[in-house]
Design a binder for these strands. Structure first.
Lengths: 191, 191
DNA sequence: ATTGCCTATGCAACTCGTTGCATAGCAGGA
DNA sequence: TCCTGCTATGCAACGAGTTGCATAGGCAAT
């Protein structure tokens, strides 16, 4: 489990309420770790009970009050321990890959629009990453350690999106080639 | 939920028992969809109840009997319907990225060996993919539709591993640069 | 005025996924 | 002989994650 650790990192970078964390998980962090507000609130309560984080009630006007959390000593210690533990292998869940293999038993052409939608959303994300890179790291020769680490993670996201775009183009070309075959395909496995 | 669909695809490619499916999920399929034998057995029972799959008892000697499942009509129909549904965006869980950002609040050097281990396991996987490609797709000009789709998924895996290896090298270079700085790093957020 | 959206937190119920354990026969090595 | 490991399936319990709903004030547009 690493949701606690992702939350700790986020709170170390900037203290915030559960609601704010949930929004961060919808944006930057969300691209390598997702969580809903339900999970976040529940985990925050547990973390507070364990003294991993400290909470402070912040009254607001015009808005509901909020509880602003920040990482506490025990949280930092837990994070340091976790960093030194061997890592769990990443669990991949690539639904589109399942669909592509499934298309062999159905009509490959039916997947084209789906893959195109994916392509567009990955292209949009790449554009957002590149824009964020320009904004946050305009001068890569003047970064402190913290920024260098954030930047290398961002570069990973950028390269992932580039790779994915190229692959989706490859997938589309394959699907179109198969469709252009006139719908004639191996039918041995069809009903 | 797509475990059902991943199982259906696997059974369409080749009927098998729960145990055999579990092993497939540890190998080829496991790289884009993971599942333990517990999940598989439970889901298979549900799928059998819904007539998505049909089971046949196969007595064996020297070994326990097994139940061999194959995809049934309702399963095929469900798969075809799922193919035409808009897809859920992939949920990424990139623990290493969390760790890298966490390293900003601890010692970046402590991550080096961890990243190196990752690098090795990705290199090994890439080698396995490339070997499998040579074995299964020696002549890419003579592939039927089914094989072309399997191949394009494999190409995706290969490109993913290549991209990841390059990124991990980038990460290692960054971590080493920071460590070579003599442990002097931004300390504004340290305890 | 009403509708809908945003901030902010939470409960309840559910499904998904993991972990530990159990059974049970057979095979192979120390 | 005992121990380990493989095939093959399963139960029980738990933790992770999702979904639907509720509250409640403020804001902006219709």
């Amino acid at each position: 489990m690493a949701l606690e650790h992702a939350i700790l990192v986020s709170l170390l970078e900037q203290p915030g309420s559960g609601y704010e964390l949930a929004r961060r998980f919808d944006r930057s962090i969300g691209r390598f770790w997702t969580a809903t507000h339900q999970q976040i609130y529940r985990v925050l309560r547990r973390m507070e009970a364990d003294d991993w984080v400290a909470a402070q009630e912040v009254p607001q006007d015009g808005r509901p009050d909020k509880k602003v959390y920040s990482a506490a000593g025990a949280g930092r210690a837990a994070l340091a321990g976790w960093l030194r533990e061997p890592v769990e292998p990443e669990t991949v869940r690539h639904e589109l890959a399942v669909k592509i293999r499934a298309a062999a038993f159905d009509d490959p052409a039916a997947l084209v629009s789906e893959v195109e939608r994916h392509r567009e959303s990955h292209a949009a994300l790449l554009a957002r990453y590149l824009h964020g890179e320009q904004r946050d790291f305009p001068d890569t020769t003047a970064l402190d350690a913290h920024e260098q680490l954030q930047h290398v993670v961002l570069r990973g996201g950028i390269e992932y999106e580039r790779m994915t775009l190229a692959w989706l183009d490859d997938v589309l070309a394959t699907l179109r080639r198969l469709s252009a075959d006139g719908g004639r395909r191996m039918t041995t496995d069809r009903v």
